[in-house]
């Protein structure tokens, strides 16, 4: 479970999918970073990722880590967004038997978990069938 400051720092990514595009070679870094892993350029511009894509692979977590203990079973997948960037995230609102490699999904803003009844609530992106 992140601390409030660790969570807050990633809000532009978690809430708005802000990424960094290398001005030199076009590589898209999500989250943003200082050095392009492709061309080693250090110059980026802010872009926003598209909100739809397709499932590359998926699994159903049945033995969850502690913060997610109430949520299991849940599906997690790697989704390739329409601009080629791949994200890891939960796939929700989809019966497990309907999960498919190649399935079209879109992003929704959801609760990821909360730090008990008294701690911070952590939000972020999840995928739902398109």
């Amino acid at each position: 479970m992140p601390t409030p400051s660790r969570y807050w720092r990633e809000i532009p990514q978690r809430y708005r999918l802000e990424a960094a595009k290398c001005k030199n070679c076009g590589f898209i870094a999500f989250p943003p970073r200082q050095i392009c892993p492709r061309c080693h350029s250090r110059s980026f511009e802010t872009i926003v990722l598209p909100e739809a894509g397709k499932v590359v692979t998926y699994t159903i977590i049945r033995v969850p880590p502690q913060p997610f203990s109430d949520q299991a079973p849940y599906a997690v997948g790697i989704v390739e967004l329409d601009n080629g960037v791949r994200l890891t995230g939960q796939i929700v609102d989809c019966p497990f038997e309907d999960l498919k490699i190649g399935q079209r999904v879109k992003i929704e803003f959801r609760k990821i978990y909360q730090d008990g009844d008294a701690g911070v609530i952590y939000y972020g992106y999840k995928f739902v069938p398109e």
Binding site: D70, Q71, E108, F109, R110, K111, I121, Y123, K126
Partner: peptide
């Protein structure tokens, strides 16, 4: 769903 609340639906 457990991952939906007033805030997520508002968004």
């Amino acid at each position: 769903s457990p991952d939906q609340d007033t805030i997520t639906m508002s968004v």
